[in-house]
């Protein structure tokens, strides 16, 4: 009984991170009282492209950039608002992220390290802004690679949108990737795969199947994410701190041979089930 009561207590004491808007998420991972927003909604940096296509623009273009402290050290957080346009990356919001990372890089190079955190919730490039969005995602990726030589770059994907397209590559480039069970991570979203390859390839309506392939639990079990957490503000904030306190080893994208060898273990003509893939691509060394 006490076990049940205890877990009930823990459940009730939990504060959902997924339910938070981007601004509240950014506030939640920074030390209390240190959140300071840059280029906020009153600065009026909206998408110039959406209204031309009859789409209402949000005042901050769906990305919150905040400076503050993490464990007392200077930090910058970029949080994508998944509820606005699916968290899609357009020219303005993407430039805010790239600019924040590039300025953090400059600070690191000058000897004053800044801890960069990406709170991602995005379907990838904003289709209405096409190449401008793609170009800026490339800038974000380049900045992550340059920055992680100085300081861990930490990404959180919690759900409910997940992280797709070019931004899934950006997440994969980060030094530490934190996920929840509700999160999904993949290059192409399920609807795109169904549309392009047919329902025999993937039924985008089959939620259990989708999560078994792309969900946080599977990504963690196959070593593509570094931490699997409950949907809890305190747990996520603590894991972000741990990621900076215990810098990780080489980034995944630097371990080309290891991942090529992993791919070689899979027969694409007879792909393993998601469950079997966990044995083929077992987490190594617990890291």
């Amino acid at each position: 009984m006490s076990g049940v009561a205890g877990s009930r207590q823990r459940f009730l004491g939990r504060r959902s991170y997924i339910e938070l808007l981007a601004r509240e998420r950014a506030r939640a991972v920074l030390d209390a009282g240190t959140f300071r927003e840059l280029l906020g909604p009153f600065d009026g940096l909206k998408s110039p492209w959406l209204p031309l296509q009859g789409v209402v623009a949000q005042a901050d273009d769906g990305v919150v950039i905040a400076r503050g402290l993490i464990d007392g050290k200077a930090a910058v957080v970029a949080a994508v608002e998944g509820r606005y346009q699916g968290g899609s990356i357009g020219e303005v919001c993407g430039s805010k992220i790239a600019g924040a990372l590039e300025l953090a890089l400059r600070d690191c190079e000058r000897g004053s390290p800044v801890r960069p955190v990406l709170l991602l919730e995005t379907g990838g490039v904003r289709l209405q802004e096409a190449n401008l969005g793609l170009a800026v995602i490339a800038e974000i990726q380049a900045a992550i690679i340059a920055l992680r030589r100085h300081v861990p770059v930490v990404a959180v994907v919690a759900g409910i949108v997940g992280c797709y397209g070019g931004m899934s590559l950006a997440a994969a480039l980060c030094s530490t990737l934190i996920m929840t069970r509700q999160a999904r991570l993949g290059m192409n979203g399920p609807e795109v795969i169904e549309q392009e390859a047919g329902i025999a390839e993937l039924d985008a309506g089959d939620r259990a199947l989708i999560w078994s392939l792309m969900g946080g639990e599977q990504r963690y079990a196959t070593g593509l994410a570094d931490a699997l957490l409950e949907d809890d503000v305190d747990e996520i904030a603590a894991e972000v701190r741990r990621a900076f306190a215990n810098p990780p080893g080489p980034a995944r994208s630097e371990q080309v041979e290891r991942f090529a060898e992993r791919l070689a273990r899979v027969d694409v003509a007879l792909p393993p089930s998601p469950r079997a893939l966990r044995d083929v691509w077992r987490r190594e060394g617990g890291a």
């Binding site: 808007l21 906020g40 909604p41 009153f42 209402v56 623009a57 949000q58 005042a59 608002e81 509820r83 606005y84 346009q85």
Partner: peptide
């Protein structure tokens, strides 16, 4: 003072007040 609430998400809106 000024205030900002809400999000331009489905069935929602944002309000900027200054």
């Amino acid at each position: 003072r000024r205030a900002h609430v809400g999000v331009v998400g489905s069935g929602d809106l944002e309000v900027l007040l200054q």
